[in-house]
Design a binder for these strands. Structure first.
Lengths: 345, 345
DNA sequence: GTGAAAGCGCTAACAA
DNA sequence: TTGTTAGCGCTTTCAC
């Protein structure tokens, strides 16, 4: 690899005929003013020498890392970035960070893994802040969160909240409200036997959606019937078999609210295979609004999650001088979800 | 935030009654030997003080960043991490890196964006190596690659290759061979009118799949018929309309090879809507083997891409002392894809 | 096997 | 407005 001599601030200073301090001032546009003349000479020297400041030296001195850590906590290593949720959030988050000249450092953290290495990173001074993505609700995440909070970095938790005792800023979305809206929509259409395709209950999001469903049923004066809840582990083929089971019931459902679009599509496939038409025989609502949703026949009615907004808010909370360490924890951000009415219900 | 006094190596040294040099030796398990007694004293002091070494000071001194950069080059900022390709690759890549105590720093690089900030990062000394993910073929990427190579870091390009002049290590998969295998499979089944649902031709992968398709047709002695190629921009609803168009042809196809599973699913939906059965009336093969593929009715025959293996290989090339900077560029790694026969063809 | 000390390249306090 | 210089916390050379 190229072994060209390392160009340092000192070289630039010499060439421009100024001190290293001035080079620093020009580079950082402060903290002290510089004359136009000097600025130009320094800039030219930087150009000519193709100088690039050393990030470690800068970080060591200034205690600013220009880096945010992303802790992705999920059930196993090969799932940490696996969901389309994360892709969408990361796109928005990294874009927002880059605008402010910050980078994102990925830290996959499979549930159950030794936390020591993460602790080392958090204490290494290499991070200005942390975004934590968890899939469980407290108290399951208390250990992890306690460690992160103890590291003393500005932190934001996204998707699920942490125990309030930690005073962590959070950006979540309203799972239960989404499930509630979906179910109410079905009730509003006159359905009385409404099934729920349940997600993997290890995921808090699945629990919340189940809860929203029950709530809406109760409010609608409908009976809660366990046999109408098809348990899955987010697995589409389970949705297929559960749907088939529902169809066998003595009093089968006329509508299905699925905890994810994947599950909804599974139900749709099953219904189609069984010769039922959607939404005439059975109505379907999904959750997530994945790109595929609008492409199905019929296009899927579903609940849209503002994923990009989650990423943007997380960035803002960490970078905004107003939202960051300075101010006390503001009220948790809970983003609204949106019912997207299409053809399936 | 907690303003506890910063614990440094010096504090540990004092408490353990040794010099800072020895603390360093213990911490790094070298480069010079230490006595068992000393090692224990130092370890205890580290524990008691809850000491964590400063990453920047370490990096500044040792010139090892323990960080790999990931440059994600795609058409717009909100797509850089958007594909399921990247999710799967990142899962494997970050897991492999972490095993060797390395982190991944994300750098989204929308096509057409100013390269200066990236150059700054590459020259900042904060990275030990770079993984570059591109979606175009040379010479479109020459500018970007030239800059990365000039930075002098060990680098690996994944998914698409770079111009050979750069001597960059690469981990790609065989798009054309996959398309070829898919098409040949259809020919082998007796199909003579085989359509191709083309992807977004701005993406090299779409071009390569198209090329593999043409190649197989030619080898099979079949005529190349432009009217059998349905152009899309990876957009499933375009696959729907193009399929409908194909059905209107005087001599319609009996099989469709789609450049992605998404497109294949679109074709499947369209066929279903038009009352044709798959694979009896029209056979379908996709590309990617997304999780959904096996859940469709009928399950999709498709081409599987070894995404996790791409991530693992990239990590190995960067971290292995044998594969990294030391050795000359080895032959490019081109991973084989696999035809997964299921129900749709 | 260990200690002392010289920097790595930068920022910012102190002087001017 | 600018120069001088003391570190930031660590690794590693030189000395013992």
């Amino acid at each position: 690899m190229s072994e060209r001599k390392r160009i340092t601030q000192r070289d630039v200073a010499e060439r421009a005929g100024v001190s290293t301090a001035v080079v620093s001032y020009v580079l950082n546009n402060g903290p002290r003013p510089t004359s136009l003349d000097v600025r130009e000479r320094v800039s030219r020297a930087i150009q000519e020498l193709d100088y690039h400041p050393n990030g470690f030296a800068r970080g060591l001195r200034s205690r600013r890392a220009h880096t945010i850590g992303f802790v992705a906590n999920d059930y196993n290593a090969l799932d940490c970035f696996g969901s389309h949720y994360l892709s969408a959030i990361l796109d928005a988050l990294t874009a927002a960070l880059k605008q402010q000249d910050n980078y994102l450092l990925m830290y996959p953290m499979p549930i159950g893994e030794d936390p020591e290495p993460l602790k080392r990173l958090l204490r290494s001074g290499r991070l200005d802040g942390v975004v934590v993505r968890v899939v469980q609700d407290p108290p399951a995440t208390d250990g992890l969160i306690a460690m992160i909070v103890k590291a003393g970095l500005p932190s934001v938790i996204i998707e699920r909240p942490a125990s309030t005792q930690f005073g962590l800023r959070s950006v979540t979305y309203d799972d239960a409200a989404g499930a509630h809206a979906a179910t109410r929509h079905l009730i509003g259409q006159g359905h009385r036997r409404i099934a729920h395709m349940v997600g993997d209950l290890r995921y808090a999001t699945a629990q919340a959606r189940l809860e929203g469903y029950r709530q809406a049923l109760t409010e609608g004066g409908l009976e809660i019937d366990e046999s109408l809840m098809g348990r899955t582990t987010w697995n589409m083929s389970q949705a297929v078999s559960e749907t088939l089971r529902l169809l066998e019931l003595r009093d089968p459902p006329t509508a299905i609210f699925a905890a994810s679009d994947d599950l909804a599509i599974g139900a749709l496939e099953a219904l189609r295979a069984a010769g039922r038409s959607v939404p005439e025989d059975v109505a379907i609502i999904g959750f997530d609004d994945i790109p595929l949703a609008q492409e199905m026949t019929p296009p899927l009615t579903t609940i849209r999650i503002p994923l990009a907004e989650i990423g943007r808010r997380a960035a803002a909370l960490l970078l905004d001088p107003i939202g960051a360490a300075n101010t006390p924890v503001t009220t948790p951000v809970v983003l609204p979800v949106e019912l997207i009415k299409r053809g399936s219900a």
